[in-house]
């Protein structure tokens, strides 16, 4: 088992806005799973949205996986992509800074560049209610298993009962 790598799973969104809460819920599921198996290399965090102070947070990790709900039309269920630091794109509101912005800020201010990925999960409903829609729930459950597999591969560990392709 690779004990050296420190991994952060960071979910964000508003659980009071239906499917927007998937990032937070996945984080809670990972926390439960890591506690069950004493996976001390994994930390979890969550918030309504990313903000500038998260640049300092991610500077403490080797690997960071952000988890977020997505409205992207070309997304069918979920997708994991590498986050490329972006110094050109400037968000219009600081309440919605992007993972790319956070990684870039981390490099500039803390001289660290963790391996950073974004797990986007397709959502469909965004009204002022709690509860994930049925369609999004299916996507989230698949994404959770996928994330477990990613973490097992990353940390070189295996658990029976989780089937990874």
């Amino acid at each position: 088992m690779n004990r050296e790598k420190k991994v952060l799973i960071y979910g964000y969104g508003n659980p009071g806005r239906r499917d927007d809460g998937m990032g937070i819920i996945i984080t809670e599921m990972i926390e439960e799973w890591k506690n069950e198996h004493n996976l001390t290399q994994i930390d979890v965090d969550s918030n309504y949205q990313l903000n500038v102070e998260d640049a300092e947070k991610i500077s403490q990790y080797d690997v960071v996986i952000f988890v977020d709900a997505s409205q992207e039309e070309d997304l069918t269920n979920f997708r994991l992509v590498e986050v490329i630091p972006n110094e050109e794109k400037v968000e219009f509101t600081m309440h919605a800074v992007s993972p790319a912005y956070i990684v870039h800020l981390c490099q500039k201010l803390f001289s660290k560049k963790p391996e950073t990925k974004l797990l986007s999960i397709k959502g469909y409903r965004w009204e002022f209610q709690e509860g994930i829609s049925d369609s999004a729930l299916l996507n989230m459950e698949r994404a959770f298993i996928f994330l477990q597999c990613q973490l097992m591969s990353l940390l070189d560990i295996k658990f029976s009962g989780i089937k990874c392709n």
Binding site: N51, V52, K108, L109
Partner: peptide, 19 residues
């Protein structure tokens, strides 16, 4: 803030840690 960090790194750093 990226430009602030390039111009005055300490100011940007303080802002982040105070947040």
């Amino acid at each position: 803030i990226i430009a602030v960090a390039q111009e005055n790194k300490e100011l940007a750093y303080q802002g982040i840690m105070m947040r």
